[in-house]
Amino acid sequence: RGREARRTTSSNTELRTPKEIVRYYLDDSTSWVGILIDIFLLLLNLLACVMFVLLVEGDFELFVLDLVIGILFLIEYILRVWSAEYPWKYILSWYGIIDLVSTLPVFASIIFRSADDEADVLRAVQVFRVFRVLRFARFLDSEEFFFGSLDRLMLQQVRLVFTVLCLIFCAAGTFTALEGPVTAVHTVDSFGEALYFIVITFSTVGYGDITPETTAGRYAIMIFILCTMVFVPSSVGELIRMKRERKQIKAVSKAR
């Protein structure tokens, strides 16, 4: 809604200042410039997720590339804060917090630059990397989905699928970061094993072949289970409500 409102405002008034131009194109997905920016950010988000999986499994040779991705996220965050009409409102917003968390690995890498091994830096910041997947939520902000359009019901279905996949990915990534191959515990050997454990746990099957061995791992899984119990039913309830509203509208239309 905010994106549509800003686009309408910008289309009705001439963009005069650099801040207005930057703010418009960062939120726009109709002009060719806005589309190119969205495509770039989308591919960057996908690459960040792939990089996280590789790094969390111990492929530290890609550390420099991941640092470049983090710097690009930092540049985007600075541009959004600088161009925002109310900077603090953006900083404290949901998307502002997500963007800030996406830049934390960059700051942590600078702070821990004196570490003897790059692995020490990665272990300190890899938990924050997993939450970069939340940046995809910005593409679900309105009916303009990936440069096309969806009705409200279809968009809610996409949001439900995204919520489930996002929770699974974040939980598996966090568990791998805490008890994966680059840790002393080594409960799981790969992100795939962690993914298997999370799906089995969230589905309440619980074979018991993999169990958290650290306090941090146990609390992390507990938090993600609680989040799943809250967010998934909420999304399903909203979807059911929208379907009922659509049926009522159709019934009223037929009655007329």
Results as ranks from 00 to 15, higher is better:
Q156M: 15
A171C: 13
P233W: 03
T214C: 15
Y95P: 00
I37Q: 08
R246T: 11
L72W: 05
V64H: 06
S93K: 02
D209N: 10
R7H: 12
I39G: 02
D117M: 10
T214V: 13
L153Q: 14
Y95N: 12
G217Y: 08
G70V: 03
F197D: 01
T174S: 14
V130E: 04
E193R: 00
A124S: 13
I110L: 15
C170M: 15
Y219I: 14
I111K: 09
F52H: 09
R113Q: 11
A171W: 02
L160H: 03
A137C: 04
W88M: 10
V121T: 15
F63P: 04
N45M: 08
E238D: 09
V158A: 08
R159G: 01
F112N: 11
I71Q: 10
D28W: 04
I198Q: 05
F175S: 02
I168W: 03
A108D: 03
A177W: 00
R23N: 05
H186G: 09
V182A: 07
F162M: 06
A172Q: 00
I39P: 04
Y219V: 12
L100D: 03
F107P: 01
V33H: 07
E20A: 15
T163I: 12
F60Y: 15
S190R: 10
R138W: 10
A255Y: 10
E76N: 08
D66L: 06
V232Y: 01
A184Y: 07
S253H: 10
E213F: 06
E179V: 00
V64Q: 05
A5H: 13
A119D: 03
L26A: 00
F197W: 14
I75G: 05
Y25N: 04
G148E: 05
V199M: 14
F147D: 01
V68Y: 12
I198V: 13
D27T: 06
L160R: 07
V125H: 04
E245C: 08
F169T: 02
L239R: 13
I21L: 11
V101E: 01
Q157P: 01
I240E: 10
I168G: 00
L15Q: 06
A251I: 03
F40R: 04
T17Y: 13
K243I: 09
S93L: 01
E76C: 02
T204M: 02
D189F: 01
E213W: 03
S190G: 15
T103S: 12
I168M: 09
L54N: 04
V50K: 07
T214A: 13
T183L: 06
R138F: 05
R3V: 07
R241P: 02
A5P: 03
E193A: 09
R246E: 14
F145D: 04
F175V: 10
R152S: 10
R80G: 00
L54M: 15
Y95E: 08
L72V: 14
E143M: 01
I37E: 06
F202G: 08
A48E: 08
G96K: 00
F162V: 02
D38Y: 04
A177T: 11
I97W: 11
M242T: 13
V161M: 11
L100E: 02
L62P: 02
I98M: 12
E144W: 07
R152L: 12
R16S: 13
A5S: 12
H186R: 14
L26T: 08
K247F: 13
S10C: 13
F147S: 07
F40Y: 15
P18H: 12
V121N: 07
W94N: 04
L195I: 09
D120W: 12
R1M: 11
